[in-house]
Amino acid sequence: AAMALAREAADGEAGELRLGFVSAALYRHLPRLLRRLRDELPGVRPYLFELSSNEQLAAISEGDLDIGFTHPPFGTGERLDILTFPDEKLIAVLPKDGGPDRVTLGELAARGLVLFPKEQGPATHARILDAFAAAGQEPQIVQEATRALTMLSLVSAGLGAALLPRSTQVLSFEGVRYASIADDRLPAFSLSAIARRRPRRAVIDKVWKVLAVVAAEATPGS
């Protein structure tokens, strides 16, 4: 059995996988990858770490993480393999108060925003505020939060409104409602999978091929 395990590890069929992810990967792409690994590479042992994009980039650069689900752009000199998933529109998360299913940027600004810190995604953060400014709005950021579940909790408590990827709607969270946004100026949320190009273990190459299939299946028209 030990010899068989060693052969599988050498061929990339078995081994440890250190997998980082941001909240946006939880609702669709990460579960699909884990299901495929269970079916196609049962000898792979995933260890999951919920980390910000910047934390993942640092961990991959230092060799502490094998693959990450992150938000671009990637401010690193590390040579990376990158798989891109379809962009997602942002959706408003509001207290469950019987309000409409569609809101304006002005209505969101009036409530105040629960938003991720600038350091977590500087480009997207700036584009969100620019969209409000273009609509003649200057929202107050009433609370910063780094995780989607934290944002949902804060919105449920009535602290403000949040902006999250549309796939977040799969979560049924007490005290919140989801609404589309009547403005096309807000940026879409981008998600990519990244891995250090070389050196890396054979098991990472195998997992990367499986992940490429997951990304292709998620792309419309593929």
Rank of each mutant, 00 (worst) to 15 (best):
E8I: 02
A10F: 07
A10D: 10
E13H: 10
E16G: 03
S23T: 14
L26E: 15
H29C: 13
P31F: 15
R32G: 15
L33T: 06
L33Y: 10
L34F: 13
R36F: 13
R36H: 15
E40H: 05
L48E: 01
S52L: 12
Q56R: 05
A58S: 13
G63M: 03
G63S: 12
G63K: 03
I67L: 03
H71I: 11
H71L: 08
P72C: 08
E78W: 09
L83A: 08
A92T: 01
A92N: 01
L94N: 01
G106E: 08
A109G: 04
R111T: 14
V114N: 02
F116K: 09
K118D: 11
E119S: 15
G121S: 12
A123F: 10
H125G: 05
I128Y: 04
A133W: 06
A135E: 08
Q137D: 14
E138Y: 06
P139I: 09
I141L: 06
V142Q: 06
Q143I: 05
E144M: 07
A145L: 10
A148S: 11
L149S: 10
T150E: 14
L152V: 03
S153C: 06
S153F: 09
V155K: 01
S156W: 01
G160P: 04
G160R: 05
A162G: 01
P165N: 05
P165G: 04
S167N: 14
S167E: 10
Q169I: 08
Q169R: 09
F173N: 04
Y178M: 00
S180N: 07
A182T: 06
P187W: 06
A188M: 13
S190N: 07
L191E: 10
S192L: 05
A195S: 05
R196Q: 05
R196P: 09
R196M: 01
R196E: 03
R200G: 07
R201V: 03
A202I: 02
A202P: 10
A202V: 01
V203L: 02
I204K: 00
D205Q: 09
V207Q: 00
A216M: 09
A216W: 09
E217R: 12
A218Q: 10
